[in-house]
Computed example of a mutant assay.
Amino acid sequence: MLRYACGFYLASHGHDTRAIQAYLGHKNIQHTIRYTELTSDRFQKFWLD
């Protein structure tokens, strides 16, 4: 659960997916993408100036 919470926290705070992958030690990016898919507001401020 701690690993899951850490991955979700990093993804929700805008950290790079590849950096999260390296930090968590995932060999396959598909294991890391599950954290980025859960963040619904990740692109909320994407187009704001």
Rank of each mutant, 00 (worst) to 15 (best):
M1S: 15
M1N: 15
L2T: 10
L2M: 10
L2Q: 11
L2A: 14
R3D: 12
Y4Q: 14
Y4E: 15
C6V: 05
C6D: 03
C6A: 10
C6W: 08
G7H: 00
F8T: 07
L10F: 09
L10M: 13
L10C: 04
A11M: 14
S12Q: 07
S12W: 05
H13E: 09
H13M: 05
H13N: 15
H13V: 08
H13R: 12
H13K: 10
G14M: 11
G14Y: 09
G14H: 14
H15G: 04
H15P: 01
D16A: 02
D16T: 02
D16Q: 04
D16H: 04
D16M: 01
T17I: 09
A19H: 01
A19L: 00
A19I: 02
I20L: 05
Q21R: 12
Q21E: 08
Q21V: 03
Q21K: 11
Q21D: 06
A22Y: 00
A22G: 07
Y23E: 01
Y23K: 03
Y23R: 01
Y23S: 02
L24Q: 05
L24F: 06
G25N: 03
G25T: 04
H26M: 06
H26E: 06
H26S: 03
I29E: 06
I29H: 01
Q30R: 09
Q30K: 08
T32V: 03
T32L: 04
I33N: 07
I33K: 12
I33G: 03
R34L: 08
Y35V: 02
Y35S: 02
Y35L: 02
E37N: 14
E37C: 10
E37K: 13
L38R: 15
L38A: 15
T39C: 14
T39E: 11
S40H: 10
S40G: 15
D41I: 12
R42T: 14
Q44N: 14
K45C: 12
K45M: 15
F46I: 11
F46W: 12
F46H: 14
W47E: 13
W47S: 15
W47N: 15
L48K: 13
D49E: 05
